[in-house]
Amino acid sequence: MVSLIPVAETALPGSRRSRRSTGAVLLRVALIAAALYLALPLLATVAFSLATVWSRTIVPEGFTFDWYNAAIADDRFWPTTIRTLQATTAAAIISPLLVVPALLMVHLRAPRWKPWLEFLSIVPWALPGVVLALAMIRAYISPFNVSRPGLLILTYVLLSLPFMFRSIDAALSAIDARTLSEAAQMLGAGWFDIGRRVLLPGIMPGLMSGILLIAALGAGEYALASLMAGSGWKTFPIYQAQAQSVDGRIASALAVIGLFYTLVVSLSLLFIAGRNQNRGGTAGLPIAANK
């Protein structure tokens, strides 16, 4: 990482030094305040989920795992968890199957299609959950009564297009797919070998970060799940919302379970991005989804 102020720290006269250090102090304060602001609600959720009673004193009166047991023992826990994992897995399989062939073709053969695909892949950013839910209901559910879970999964695929497209596109640009595959061809490699040994390893970081973002999306998506699939096919976030209106401590336990999952996904993303800074490891951000 680049240091912002690389100029020799001691060589400057006093007045400039003090001005710079006020800047540094300001940055420091902003950083510490933000770290507290971001960490406190996480820690409070964890503490709340483990506390026996925590409404009169500053620290909880005692600790227990009861809320976790109650959350998992509930009839709704496993069905909703499995549904969320099903929807996530299905979307994580379908999305690359659509995006990877299209982008390979664009990079290797048909670059003039790229602006069109880029435009189509970014449109979902402008369609928030409530809007998409209404559109899908009006277009497919009320006239044709299509399978709601199936349509929900396809809508998750749609939501994944902006970041899946960007991360794989960045990976293909970073390895210069066209030059590499031409070079491989000249060395006598067939298309199968090129795909397996050149292109696949090249897009792997982009593909992995796209899939991880789908995992984060599916675990927290509430608007579409509640408005489109609703009571017939409840997912994990819907169970969370229902639990929250009954008992905050059970809901906290569920939130911590979801948070742990998010933590694993986020740190894996960070790890991939850190290792592949020049290979398109950093994907687009899921704007507005889940918020």
Partner: peptide, 27 residues
């Protein structure tokens, strides 16, 4: 790590987390 994790923390659980911090009997 903190920024990456919190950027994915939103929706229903986030509302709950704030109730635990700043709700009527929050921390």
């Amino acid at each position: 790590g903190l920024v990456a994790t919190t950027s994915n923390f939103s929706g229903i659980p986030l509302a709950l987390a704030f109730i635990a911090v700043l709700g009527a009997s929050g921390f």
